[in-house]
């Protein structure tokens, strides 16, 4: 477990599109985040479920929070801006709904220049929600 850091220190996104509540674990190669799906979530659908693209954004912001945490530990004040370059092999197993708490782990596969390749996996309790590979390119 890492000590609590205000997520706004780790990611540049702000409401209504902050899709990570907190980073709960992090080391050089991986990180884990949490998000409770509340009724003001930008990606909430009329059927009360979180839209798939909200899941992808949540996974991407977990990867950004990891990069932000590593930068923060090196004394960088401003969270780096990262853009999704590619979503590859996304697979949806179930749609989480309002009230669910997502736990997402990202694992760095490769870093080359300003592009980071991560595998992301999201669960609610022990049920697998979705997984994907993401390429995040950090703004120079």
């Amino acid at each position: 477990m890492i000590d609590y850091i205000d997520i706004r220190q780790l990611i540049p996104q702000r409401q209504p599109i902050m899709m990570v509540d907190a980073l709960v674990e992090a080391d050089e190669q991986s990180a884990t985040s949490r998000l409770i799906i509340r009724d003001n979530n930008f990606f909430l659908q009329e059927d009360g479920c979180l839209g798939e693209v909200g899941l992808i954004e949540h996974m991407a912001q977990t990867a950004s929070a990891h990069a932000g945490y590593m930068a923060f530990k090196q004394g960088v004040q401003e969270a780096p801006i990262g853009y999704i370059g590619e979503v590859k092999g996304f697979c949806l197993y179930m749609l989480p709904k309002k009230g669910d708490e997502l736990t997402t782990t990202v694992q760095i596969v490769l870093q080359a220049g300003n592009v980071t390749v991560v595998n992301a996996m999201t669960k609610v309790d022990d049920s697998l929600v979705a997984e994907t590979q993401l390429k995040i390119s950090l703004k120079e």
Binding site: Q45, D47, G51, I56, A60, K88, G89, F90, L92
Partner: peptide, 30 residues
């Protein structure tokens, strides 16, 4: 991700489906 959702909503218009779920993304390049 909003541009992926835009494609999904255009697919809902095209097919007339009231709800659609993105099951798989083989590859989406930005």
């Amino acid at each position: 991700v909003c541009n992926i959702q835009t494609v999904k909503e255009c697919m809902m218009l095209l097919t007339g489906e009231k709800s659609l779920s993105i099951r798989k993304v083989k590859r989406c390049r930005f």
